[in-house]
Simulated scan of single mutants.
Amino acid sequence: MKKQKLQVYLSSGNFQGLCCIYPSNLLIPIDMLIWSYYLSGLGIMQGVLLAVLLFTRKINQKANKFLGAFICVLLVSLTEHWYQPMLPGLFSEILGGFLFLYGPLMLLYVKSLLGESLSLRNSIGHFAGFGLYILGLLAGYLLIEIEREIAELVLAHILFIHLLYYSFLTLNRIHLESRKEAFSVTYTILNWLKAFTGTLAAIYLVAFIGMYLRIMGLSASNWILFAVQTGCVLVVYGFSYWSLVQPEASRKQKEEVKYAHSGLSEPDQQILLNRILAFFTEHKPYFQPTFTLDQFARNMGTNRFYISQVINERTGKNFSDFLNAYRIEEAKRILTDPKKSHYSVVGAGYEAGFNSKTAFNTAFKKLTGYTPGEFRKLNREEVRIEQTGQ
């Protein structure tokens, strides 16, 4: 009975299919249509549960809301074959423009998960593509039929470029995070994010190929675009699994996880630590405001990962704190030296290797519990008491 209804519906020429992937001018196997309904139904049910979980979760609230919005947009595509016959053409096409939200939402999710502070002003520009699509859609109704077909083809290319561009931005942001000396999440999480973003980019590419085959009237497009639908459902289930096994994804990575696969033995660590300390004593690189971990690794003739590991595990500091500790000791020497009493507090910070007043004050208070000004004042008071004996 269900097959007969599908055949009647198909013969009417109205069936568009999931995400408009099944055009009415192609012969579509009925079994494929049935599986499409079952598959999309599973994805929709799981997606709704996942979206509710993400919007109500207390951990990583902003990141989870971006991911929840991404899942909701994906659900709009998966339910397209249900709402499309019931909505006027304009409203249906507006919902189709939600594809322009995929890339921005995924990028903002990754940025938020990695600890970036996202303001409305910084985020709103990413949705310009969707806004331009709506304006173009309204303007398209002023065109004749043939012009509209050309405009839609151009728009499809713009959408594809838009999706790949945001995939690149997202992967690049993940790559930059992995290059940091002390990043905010684990390697496992970064690999998950890379896998999800890469999978989405592959789905976009396959969908674009399917679109061209559909334009050419080839029945192979049915199978390709059915694979796209399957990929979208798998993404929903993948994110569901991710949300369950990584409930605290934004926590700082534990050092034993970070260096679990390091090939540096205990004796080698001690040797490298001795070399690091000797280099700092002899060359005093902390006087250089722009001294970096990569530069230090080149000076030492080793890689940045080993230096970071040794400093973290042997001193309990990351490279930035390790470097600033030397600078603060130098600043304390300047602030307590009677011969340099003419130095201002800021001048002492610059002399010690800091490149800004804010960085100096923040690092100094973090290590000593006092601001540089408070430290100098306390020291002078102690000197006065010693001299007067009071």
Rank of each mutant, 00 (worst) to 15 (best):
K3W: 09
Q7S: 14
S11D: 14
F15H: 12
C20E: 09
Y22M: 08
I34R: 14
I34W: 12
W35N: 05
Y38F: 15
G41C: 05
I44A: 07
L53K: 05
K58V: 02
N60Q: 04
N60S: 05
K62Y: 07
A63C: 04
N64C: 12
K65V: 07
F66R: 00
F66T: 00
V73M: 15
L74K: 07
L75F: 14
T79W: 11
W82R: 03
W82H: 08
P85Y: 11
L90S: 11
I94C: 11
F98T: 15
F98I: 09
L99D: 04
Y102N: 01
L107A: 06
L107Q: 04
Y109A: 02
K111N: 06
L113D: 00
S117M: 10
S119L: 11
N122M: 13
S123N: 14
S123Y: 06
F127I: 11
F127R: 13
F127E: 07
L132H: 04
I134G: 07
E145V: 09
I150A: 09
I150T: 13
E152R: 06
V154A: 12
H157M: 12
H157A: 09
F160I: 00
I161W: 11
L164S: 03
Y165I: 08
Y166A: 05
R173P: 00
I174Y: 03
H175D: 12
H175C: 04
E177P: 00
Y187D: 05
T188V: 11
T188H: 13
I189W: 00
L193H: 03
L193N: 01
G198Y: 01
G198T: 05
A202W: 07
A202M: 11
Y204Q: 03
V206I: 12
A207W: 01
G210I: 08
I215Y: 12
G217K: 07
S221R: 05
N222P: 00
W223R: 03
W223N: 05
V228N: 01
L234E: 02
Y237T: 14
Y241F: 15
W242T: 02
V245E: 11
A249W: 01
A249S: 09
S265I: 10
L273P: 02
N274Y: 01
I276M: 05
F287S: 10
Q288I: 14
P289E: 11
T292Y: 09
D294I: 09
A297R: 06
S308C: 10
S308T: 10
Q309L: 14
I311A: 03
K317M: 12
N318L: 05
D321N: 15
L323D: 01
N324L: 08
A325L: 12
Y326W: 15
I328F: 10
E330M: 08
K339W: 04
Y343W: 14
V345F: 04
V345D: 01
V346M: 09
Y350A: 03
Y350C: 01
E351H: 14
G353H: 09
F354D: 00
A363L: 03
T368N: 11
Y370K: 14
T371K: 15
N379K: 09
E382I: 09
I385Q: 15
E386S: 13
